[in-house]
Amino acid sequence: MSNALAWIVATFVTLPLLAFYFVYIVSVKTTKNKRRSIKLAVDVTTILFIFAVYYIAYELWALSLFWLILIAILIVAIIFTIIHWKLSKDIELKKLIKGIWRLNFLLFLIVYFLLSIYGLFSRIFMIT
């Protein structure tokens, strides 16, 4: 049983889009609300995209870029907080945290695709 659980977790970390789709489908079936389901899938799979970016970068360059990922998350949080404060003149913590988390989803989704494409071409043409 523990092997099966480890396999499922490893699959979702390796292929976070599969996890996104799985969470979305299960959520749509239970809530019948597509917009809420997308938000839930984004919230749940953000951490998987962060781990996937870390592991892809580690496989490509044999470097731990964990510090760079943390700095990117902190920079996104700082910029988003400043923009939120300038626009609303009041900081709503719940809204702020959700916005930062979802913006990190977009950032790491883009980085995930870019690293995947780079990794694919670098392995085909032996660039690294």
Rank of each mutant, 00 (worst) to 15 (best):
D43T: 11
P16T: 00
S88W: 03
L18A: 08
F51M: 11
L114T: 04
W7V: 01
V23H: 06
A6I: 01
I56M: 10
I78D: 04
E92C: 02
L63M: 13
I79G: 01
F49V: 01
L109C: 10
L120I: 08
I38M: 09
I91E: 12
F22L: 12
T14R: 01
F121W: 10
G99D: 11
L70K: 02
L114P: 01
L15T: 04
G119F: 01
A72R: 03
E92H: 03
F51S: 14
F80Q: 13
I97Q: 01
I8E: 00
I38W: 07
L115C: 00
T81Q: 06
K89C: 06
R123M: 05
F51K: 09
I127K: 07
K95R: 02
A77Y: 03
H84D: 10
L114W: 00
A77F: 05
T14W: 02
N33S: 12
I69S: 11
Y112H: 14
N3D: 03
T46G: 05
R36C: 08
L106K: 08
A19P: 12
F49G: 03
A52M: 13
Y54M: 09
W101Q: 09
I56C: 04
A10N: 05
K94M: 07
Y24T: 13
L48K: 06
I127P: 15
V76S: 04
K89L: 11
Y54R: 14
A6H: 00
S122R: 08
I97P: 02
V44W: 09
K89D: 15
I91T: 11
I110W: 04
S122Q: 09
K89N: 10
L70F: 03
A57G: 11
K34H: 14
L107N: 11
I124H: 04
N33H: 08
D90Y: 07
T46F: 03
I117H: 02
S2R: 00
V111M: 08
K34C: 11
I75K: 06
S64M: 02
V9I: 10
Y21P: 12
W85K: 06
I69A: 09
W85D: 06
W67F: 05
M126T: 08
I47S: 15
F20I: 04
L65I: 03
I110M: 10
I100S: 10
I50T: 09
K86W: 02
I50D: 15
L106V: 12
K89T: 03
